[in-house]
Design a protein around this nucleic acid. Sequence first.
DNA 1: GTTCTAGAAC
DNA 2: GTTCTAGAAC
Length: 214
Amino acid sequence: VESPHIPVYQHPGQPLQGGGWHGALIRYLDHTPELRHFIFYETSEWMAIYDGYPKAKVHLLLIPKPEFLTINSVTELSHDKHNKQISRLHSAARCIATKLEKDTNGLRLRMGYHSLPSLRPLHIHIVSQDFDSPALKTKRHWNSFTTPFFLDLLQVETALQIHGKVTVRHEDAEALLKLSLRCHACGAVQKTIPDLKQHVKGCESMNINSSESH
DNA sequence: GTTCTAGAAC
DNA sequence: GTTCTAGAAC
């Protein structure tokens, strides 16, 4: 397990545009000078960057470096080929999350993959569960983090262990993104995104296990 | 992935 | 009238 000097989370602002969005994350790995402020921390095996459009108070992406693991989606992983690398990557994610949870005084974090990622290469989301961010604008955004579309690290590890790979049915995953807007803490359905954000701010269930509730 | 915007919803 | 979403374009 890496035990680096993980810094304090401090998002730098909006990233530069251009360069084609599918491979946008590659530009971070290439150390494009304009994006250097978006590097949260890196080792020889991975780079943790600030999400350019953070969907919560804390939102990092953990990207394995090409020489460590070259792959675009969780469905391309196999137990036989990648078990050791994935273990190390997940350890790093957990190490970062533990540090961030300390720094943020109990902000709850989830770590995992999107079933159908829009960006390559493979990346793990480390995201706090407040979803208090102006960049979270659509049902797709919301459901990609709060439905089973979001695959937790442990879930991926278990699938790899049992089935040797992670299987995603495209249409099932797409359907999850279209589910009605539901509070992830209490399950209440909300009509619009603004309604949902308003609800989450005051939702009693949100504060369980948070230091702010004590 | 985001931006833009037409038209649905209110 | 304004708010909000969803689909096209990028």
